[in-house]
Simulated scan of single mutants.
Amino acid sequence: MTTTPFQRLAIALASGTVLVAGLSACVPLVVGGAAAVGVGMVATDRRSSGAQLDDQGIELRAAARVREIANDNMYVSVTSFNRQVLLTGAVGSEADRRRVEDVVQRVDNVRSVVNELTIGQSSTFQERSNDVFISGKVKASLLDAKDIFANSFKVVTERGVVYLMGIATRRETDRATEIARGISGVQKVVRVVEVVSEAELASQAQRGGTGAPAPAPAPSSAPGTSSSSRVPLPPMEPLPPAQPGGATTTPVR
């Protein structure tokens, strides 16, 4: 069945309903949604199936770690894509900002942490609701675009700043940025993208892969900091050997 742009926007917004429902907690902490990936998305995602499972585990374990140090001045969102973690939200001090990054970096299989936490008051319920709406519009616009593979990107919005995470070519990254910048309410676009060449995607596809290069291994966890959680988690896949390249973080105003 063919869906209209309005229907696609409604679907995208519906996926954020659960997120908005929990925004009023005392020390809120949002997990980035990797655990909601379905079978169809797994098949079209450029991450390996192991990386997708690892991202689920990373988000849940990182959330558990941050809860252990959380205070009333923290509102932290944890999003993992291909074992790279994006931290968004607000904390009360620079010490808290560093502390959150440190505990998340120690989670098993985390390759790197992009710390976009701000110092100050957390966003209001209205601002967070607007962020969910903006993310929905960006996702719907990416789906409508005929010259881009929408599943290459994960969209995160914080106070009007749109973060694009993913595995994509330079052309796809620039095109997705152009689309996001054209959405009403978007203040800035930040690209946290692993840029690959068309040749790399084609070569991987011929081998039956997902089109994504192998990520670099994560640093070893410090003694006594092994990941643990009361939530049942999927097994963590060993990281493949390191290869050149990595994520590019590019602010675009």
Rank of each mutant, 00 (worst) to 15 (best):
A64S: 09
S80H: 02
A205M: 05
Y75V: 15
V252E: 13
I119N: 13
A34K: 05
V78K: 07
D45M: 10
T17E: 15
R128F: 14
A35W: 00
V231T: 14
A205G: 11
R253M: 12
V76L: 05
N82D: 15
E59Q: 03
I69V: 14
V107W: 09
A90D: 15
G38S: 12
P217C: 07
V193T: 14
G245W: 04
T169P: 02
A247E: 14
P235G: 12
P241T: 12
P5K: 01
A35Q: 05
S129A: 09
V161E: 08
P217I: 05
L164T: 13
A214K: 06
T44Q: 05
F149P: 01
T248D: 06
E127G: 01
V132S: 11
P28D: 02
R67D: 11
S220M: 15
V103Y: 06
G208K: 00
G16K: 10
T118P: 02
K154N: 08
R159D: 04
F149I: 12
I69C: 15
E116V: 00
M1D: 10
D102S: 11
T225P: 06
L9V: 00
I58Y: 02
S184D: 15
T44F: 01
I179A: 02
G38H: 06
V196H: 09
S228M: 00
V78L: 03
A10Y: 11
V132H: 01
P238G: 07
L53T: 14
G40L: 08
Q121V: 05
V37H: 02
N73Q: 15
E158C: 04
V113L: 01
E101Q: 12
K137Y: 05
S184T: 12
L29Y: 06
S135N: 12
R97H: 03
S15F: 07
G120F: 01
V31N: 06
G224M: 14
T4G: 14
G38V: 07
T210W: 01
N151R: 05
R83Q: 06
G209N: 09
S152R: 02
S48N: 07
P244T: 06
D72H: 15
S141P: 04
L117Q: 06
Q7F: 07
G136H: 09
I179S: 05
I179H: 04
G57S: 08
A14C: 00
L201G: 13
S221L: 03
